[in-house]
Amino acid sequence: MIKTLFYKEFQNYFRNLSSIFLPLIFFFLIISIFPLLIGPDKVLLNKIVPGIVWITIIFTTLLSSNNFFKDDYNNGYLETFLTSDSSVEFILFLKIISCWLFTCFPIIIFIPLVSIFFNISMKDSFIIISTLVIGSPVLISIGIFGSALTLGLAKNSILVPIIILPFFIPILIFSASAIESVSSGTPYEMQIYILLALLVFVLPTMPYLLKYTLSLSINN
């Protein structure tokens, strides 16, 4: 059963290849436009690239999570799995994981390549990847929560970013702080631990929260 449901999510993403490639294209567009606009200042670019990467991840998250449940809501699948006798929380967990796997993960794969373009050291590159791997699942979870919360509303596309962006800030602060600490040579473990704590807290609790929110959303 688990295999089949996971496979469904995979197939769904592979049939809509644009949902995988859009974040990547978006990422490379931003990455290539910044040097054009700022000019070939090696030091400055080196300093702002982690920020650019994080901005892309945030936009990707907003894009992919905005209408995350819309299709399932419109075709009735949401009602079907909420009334099914299999574990709803587990299905929602699968959905979060596959959303991350097909939107944020492709970007993370290309970070080493981007690091070479911008002459970022191995150590800095490693810490950018670490913060992204730990932080982006949390962002995706929060984004999906926002879309579940506004599902019952007719015009929700503006509401989601307004609701969820404040919750992104702790993750952004600690990620930026970790990256900053590494480049200035100070200890960075504390920030990584806090990010890990957020991940460990958010990822298992989110499916339960989502189940409750979704059953409220389809109730009206």
Partner: peptide, 23 residues
């Protein structure tokens, strides 16, 4: 009255996945 069918999957796949929910 909504069919719970995913437009981007085939008839067979849709049924397979709907049945995966049914224990």
């Amino acid at each position: 009255h909504k069919n719970s069918l995913n437009d981007s999957l085939t008839v067979f796949e849709n049924l397979e996945y709907l049945c995966a929910l049914d224990r």
